[in-house]
Amino acid sequence: MWSNLQRWRGVALVATALVATVWLAASNQLVLYIHPRYIVFTVIMAGIALVLVVAGLLARRGHRDDEDAPPARLPRLLSFLGLAIAAVIAITMVALPPATLTSATADQRSINSTTVGAQAQNVDTVASSPAGAFAKFTVVDWASLLRQTNDLAFYSGKPVDVVGFITVDPDDPDNVFYVSRFVVTCCAVDAQPVGIPVYYPNWTSTFKAGDWVEATGGFTANRSTTSAQGIALEPANVLAVEQPSEPYLY
């Protein structure tokens, strides 16, 4: 029993994880967990590993003699415990619906605590962009611009249309929220929440934190008296929308 458990636990865990990976890849949901650039590599390695797993079921075992002696009681117990925990994660991988990170993590990681990545928009290039370019700007683009300049004149005539989920501005929880997205460099673990402040008095009566919305409008001086944000989106319209299929930005 001990020996069999020792031998097959890895294969079982790997197989479960691989099945989950392959299924996520097939249903286009792998992006919920990792950066798209890893998808091809992950799927290839999963394919190779699945072949090895099946082969492993057939293969004869070498060195059986050494593994037959079970260790002492305590290490054995710990080993069982560890395996149980690993098994729980493996089971959740197949049994629970895949999910994106929630606003709880956004709160915990403190929104806009970093500058945004290398591909983000730059004030100089944006200033000379044609008007139509702004329609494609994401939360990340605007957030990086807001970080670079607070010059209201820069934002005038630049319409904003962004999709993101709601996180609360702790300084003015009733009137200001962030339309936010996670920015991922590798996998969900390193996701950084990024958002743009929206001045929407009494928003909690219409939405709740974590709701996905599409906000349109333009940036103006923030009318909130307690928020630390100098500039906020004055929304012409805030619509509840479905979570996009690629919830993270890169």
Partner: peptide, 14 residues
Amino acid sequence: LTLSISVVIESLPF
């Protein structure tokens, strides 16, 4: 769970 699964899925190929 999302974070743990994400680490597993990201690391397993490597």
